[in-house]
Every structure is written in C-alpha cells, then in structure tokens.
Deep mutational scan, measured.
Amino acid sequence: KQVQVGDEKYTFDTPEEARKFAEKVAKEKNLKVTEKNGNFHVE
C-alpha cells in the first residue's frame, strides 16, 4: 500500500501501517487523509 504526501510516495506492507503513517503525517502537517483505490493520500 502506498501513502502519497505531496510528490513523495511511501510504500508499506499492510494497509494498517500505511494508514497509521498517513494519519501521523496529516496530524503533523495539519492536513487530511483521503483513501483512493486502497492507497492513502495526505493533502
């Protein structure tokens, strides 16, 4: 599963790991997490 933050992409083995990372980054940057096709976008 992938997490996209701006132009950066991070790959994780499980959706749970990806979601945790996305939520942590979103909180730090005051952004929101959206899920698209099983991948997460922080925007």
Rank of each mutant, 00 (worst) to 15 (best):
V5A: 03
K9R: 13
K9G: 06
R19V: 06
E23I: 00
Y10Q: 03
A26T: 02
A18V: 00
F12W: 01
T14G: 05
N39R: 10
E16V: 05
Q2Y: 15
T11E: 11
Q4W: 15
K32E: 09
N37E: 10
K27L: 13
E35L: 13
F40A: 06
E23N: 03
E35A: 07
G38D: 06
H41Y: 15
N37I: 01
V33N: 04
V42D: 05
F40C: 08
G6R: 05
Q2S: 14
K32D: 08
E17R: 00
V42G: 04
K27V: 09
A18T: 02
L31N: 04
E35K: 09
L31Q: 09
H41D: 08
F21N: 05
N30F: 07
V33W: 07
F21K: 04
T11P: 04
F12M: 01
T14D: 13
P15M: 14
E8V: 13
E17Y: 00
H41M: 10
E35W: 03
Q2M: 14
V25W: 02
D7I: 06
V42K: 03
F40N: 04
L31P: 02
K20E: 14
K29G: 11
E16L: 04
E35S: 08
F21S: 05
F21H: 06
Q4E: 09
L31A: 12
V3Q: 01
Y10S: 01
E8Y: 12
K24Y: 06
K24W: 07
V25I: 14
E23Y: 05
A18Y: 00
T11W: 15
K24V: 08
V3G: 01
P15S: 13
E43C: 12
E8M: 13
N39E: 12
E23H: 04
A26E: 03
K32N: 09
E8F: 13
Q2K: 09
N30A: 08
V25L: 13
N39P: 00
D13N: 10
K20L: 11
V42M: 04
N37C: 13
N39Q: 13
K32W: 07
E43N: 09
V5S: 03
E28M: 03
N30I: 03
A26C: 08
P15K: 12
G6T: 02
L31H: 08
V5M: 08
A22G: 01
T11G: 06
D13G: 09
F21M: 06
P15L: 14
F12D: 02
T14R: 00
K27P: 01
K27W: 09
G38V: 00
V42I: 09
F40W: 11
K24F: 07
E17D: 11
L31F: 07
N37Y: 03
A22L: 06
V42A: 04
V25T: 08
N37H: 06
F40D: 06
E43F: 10
E23M: 01
D13A: 11
K20W: 07
F21L: 06
F21V: 05
V3Y: 00
E43V: 13
N39G: 11
Y10K: 04
R19C: 13
K1M: 12
P15W: 14
A26P: 00
T14E: 07
F21P: 05
D7Q: 10
D7Y: 09
G38Q: 02
K29Y: 07
V33L: 10
K29R: 14
V25F: 05
K20P: 00
T34Q: 09
D7V: 07
L31G: 13
P15G: 09
K24D: 12
K24R: 08
F12E: 02
A22Y: 03
V5W: 11
A18S: 02
E43G: 14
K20M: 10
T34I: 14
Y10N: 02
H41P: 05
E35Q: 11
V33K: 03
K29I: 05
E23R: 00
V3D: 01
E23F: 02
V5R: 02
Y10W: 10
N37G: 09
A26L: 04
V3T: 02
K27G: 09
E28T: 07
R19T: 04
R19H: 08
N30C: 12
K36E: 11
A22D: 04
K20Q: 13
K27E: 10
T11Y: 15
F40G: 05
N39W: 13
T11V: 13
E23D: 10
E16M: 06
N37P: 00
R19P: 06
K9F: 14
Q4V: 15
E16N: 05
Y10D: 02
K29T: 09
K9H: 12
T11S: 10
D13L: 08
D7L: 10
K9P: 03
T34E: 08
K36L: 13
V3M: 02
E43L: 10
E8L: 14
T11H: 13
G6S: 05
V33T: 03
N30M: 08
D7F: 08
Q2E: 12
K1T: 15
T11R: 08
N37K: 06
V42P: 05
A26F: 01
V5E: 03
E28L: 05
Q4L: 15
K24S: 12
V25C: 14
E8H: 13
K27F: 12
G6A: 06
E17K: 05
N30D: 10
V5D: 04
K32V: 14
V42S: 03
L31M: 15
Y10F: 13
K1W: 15
K36H: 13
V33R: 01
T11A: 08
K1V: 15
F12S: 02
V42Y: 02
V3S: 01
Q2F: 15
R19Q: 10
E35D: 07
E8N: 12
K32A: 11
N39F: 08
K36D: 11
G38L: 03
E23P: 00
T11F: 14
E17W: 01
V5I: 13
E28Q: 08
E23S: 00
D13S: 10
T11K: 07
T14W: 02
P15V: 15
E17L: 09
D7G: 10
R19A: 07
K36C: 15
D13E: 12
K29S: 09
K29F: 08
Y10A: 02
L31I: 06
H41K: 07
A26Y: 00
F12Q: 01
